[in-house]
């Protein structure tokens, strides 16, 4: 019998049988003894039924006690196992249920243990693979930096040497643009992998918002003027934000660049901020082409390129980078857009 492999079940049955045997013997003995005692007397009262009833009641009580103890023990074992499972789920990967006993219950525990071990192995593998991928992206980006710098220099030399040849001029200018794009891409890739890997520690200092946003405006002042667009800043000059200046400027830069990319000549990009007791809200609003409703949920995904936008600039890393930076500051970024009317990015830190 398979169930008797479990030591405790075996003991339970042994106890029950023993108890039954004892009470049968006791009952029979008492009935026999009493019968013999009253053998001679004529008016012997017949207590046999009472004796048997009494013995049976005692036996039932004893068996109930035995069963109660068995189930209490069983309950304790199961509770302990459940506690172990909970502890595993809470993050202790090394916890296992004791299972080196015979019996079905312990086999079940063993299977749970195996499951836990396999799960741990899978998570570990996944983590390693992710790390490996990150390392590779970071390595490739690093390796690309040097030849890119060289290409930039060669391109400059070509431009200098061919001042009188308009065709070469034209194409070197184009290749300069492309090189710039690749450079931005490589730099963004590096930044995003570094943020992912958690190697960057945000150096949070109280910074004046107006000053930071002025820096952002200056980055794009030339471009805006060339394209006939305006960048307007509105907000309290006194508000400070506890943040890493370089990274926050980077994040807002990407958003403003995105806004400039999607506005026509004469467009307006408005950067405004407001402080409250808990947080600072920064809004970058433009009156450009807006984002298609189907794109709204994807624009923070890496390398996402809209099906609806005809824009060929950009590589789809700017906004994801901004998001990573804001999240590293425990902030949130959300976007609100009406197609054809404009877009507003809201950052709350």
């Amino acid at each position: 019998m398979r169930i008797f492999a479990d030591k405790r079940i075996r003991t339970l049955f042994h106890k029950i049988f023993l108890c039954m045997a004892v009470f049968i013997v006791v009952g029979a003995g008492v009935v026999w003894g009493v019968g013999k005692y009253y053998y001679d007397s004529r008016n012997a009262p017949d207590f046999t039924a009472y004796f048997i009833l009494c013995c049976a009641l005692c036996m039932i009580l004893t068996i109930i006690v035995i069963l109660w103890r068995y189930f209490r023990e069983q309950n304790r074992i199961l509770e302990e196992a459940a506690a172990r499972i909970r502890e595993y789920m809470a993050g202790n990967q090394e916890i296992r249920i004791a299972c080196n006993e015979e019996g079905e219950l312990y086999r079940l525990f063993h299977e749970v243990n195996s499951l836990a071990a396999v799960l741990s192995a899978h998570t570990e593998k996944e983590r390693k693979e992710k790390q490996f991928l990150k390392d590779i992206i970071s390595d490739i980006s690093h390796q690309l930096k040097t030849p890119l710098a060289a290409l930039n220099i060669y391109n400059g030399i070509l431009q200098g040497e061919a001042e009188n040849q308009p065709t070469i001029q034209e194409f070197t200018t184009l290749s300069e643009q492309e090189l710039d794009r690749i450079e931005t891409l490589v730099q963004n890739l590096l930044k995003i992998t570094k943020l992912d890997a958690g190697t960057i520690v945000m150096d949070r200092q109280p910074e004046n918002m107006a000053e930071m946003m002025e820096a952002v405006r200056k980055h794009f002042a030339f471009r805006a003027e060339c394209e006939g667009k305006e960048i307007r800043l509105t907000g309290d000059g006194e508000i400070t934000l506890l943040c890493d200046r370089v990274w926050i400027i980077e994040a807002v830069d990407n958003i403003v660049k995105n806004a400039l990319d999607h506005t026509k000549e004469g467009g307006l990009v408005q950067i405004s901020w407001k402080g409250s007791a808990q947080a600072v809200r920064l809004i970058v609003k433009d009156n450009g082409s807006g984002i298609h409703s189907e794109d709204l949920y994807h624009i923070f995904k890496r390398f996402y390129r809209s099906r609806f936008s005809k824009d060929t600039q950009g590589i789809g890393l700017g906004l994801p980078l901004s998001k990573s930076i804001i999240e590293a500051h425990n902030g949130t970024i959300e976007v609100d857009s009406i197609e054809g009317r404009g877009t507003a990015f809201v950052i709350t830190i």
């Binding site: 299972c99 080196n100 006993e101 312990y106 086999r107 063993h110």
Partner: peptide
């Protein structure tokens, strides 16, 4: 898997070996 095999009792060890 976290079990020290040499501190186990022989009976436990048999079951452990059989399953693992």
């Amino acid at each position: 898997d976290g079990n020290d095999t040499f501190t186990m009792k022989e009976r436990e060890l048999t079951v452990f070996r059989r399953r693992n």
